[in-house]
Design a protein around this nucleic acid. Structure first.
Lengths: 159, 159
DNA sequence: GTGCGTGCAAAGACTTTGCACGTAC
DNA sequence: GTACGTGCAAAGTCTTTGCACGCAC
């Protein structure tokens, strides 16, 4: 089936939204250093933009916004950096349509649930703590260790 | 953001696993007729194979298995039929990695939860009724009508 | 100095589409 | 008989990769 993990839903950070004591750039820097990689201006700018977007984004959007701000970064670098950020557990790939990959900042945040309005196209990230409990229970019952969750609800206005 | 619905998680059938009174081919036939489309041998064969697979599958797998059984169907027709089956609410696209789309039979079945073993690559569909309740509650609170759910848990053996 | 990083363009993987011929109703 | 369906191959889209040059450590 060729199901390569693709770091599907990292959750490396602490499990609450509050307890971040370290800026994300430091987290990224450390992760890079651990792999013998460098914290370059391009990587810093990309992470910075992701923090400013603070929500769902796509590779293309990210690239556009970087260019709008006058940064010169190539598409290749954006994709390569996104992959590094995923591996560092800072962002997560959120696959909900087949068109392209979407990503979101997850480090230091509780796993969220995406409420996708199929009529308007809006996507809202909501917090549903019970889901994490259910996930943990399911894993515990099977001797597994959870490494991430993806919960998406598709809905329209009540007609 | 270009979030075209892509019939993300249809749930057209009844909400339990038991109450199917009509064969799937009849459901498909009716859906096609409703759109002025035809129930061709290729479409019948593809649906039949999906029923026999009875679990997750991909376009490629489906094509291979059809060919193994001696059916001559083109890749284009497989993709086109998959889209029709999605629209008919018979199958659902399950996006959990970026490599390719996976699908599963959903008509007449309760929404399931996919437990993805990232170490072994196994994917198991499990039934977690509470999730449906949570989904319904979330939607009710917001005046929305649920049209589908995607719940995926990524886990490894407890180390 | 070495090795990692970047940009560009080309390549890749999956999926969709155009076209001419065939077939269901 | 008409309109939809199919197969083939070409085109598309997002993403990855090869290569030469550049910069960080």
């Amino acid at each position: 089936m060729d199901l390569r993990p693709v770091s599907p839903a990292n959750e490396t950070g602490p499990d609450a939204d509050i307890e971040i004591t370290e800026p994300l750039c430091a987290v990224f820097r450390r992760a890079l250093k651990g792999e013998g990689l460098k914290y370059t201006p391009e990587r810093a700018q990309i992470l910075d933009m992701i923090i400013r977007i603070d929500g769902l984004f796509e590779a293309e959007t990210l690239l556009d916004r970087l260019k709008d701000d006058g940064f010169r970064v190539s598409k290749a670098t954006v994709y390569r950096t996104i992959k590094l950020l995923e591996e560092a557990g800072i962002i997560q790939r959120v696959v909900f349509d087949r068109e392209q990959s979407h990503y979101q900042l997850v480090y230091g945040r509780r796993p969220n649930t995406l409420l996708v309005r199929t009529d308007t196209g809006d996507v809202e990230a909501i917090d549903v703590p019970e889901l994490v409990e259910i996930r943990d229970r399911i894993c515990r019952e099977r001797g597994l260790e959870p490494h991430g969750t993806r919960f998406q609800i598709f809905a329209t206005a009540r007609g």
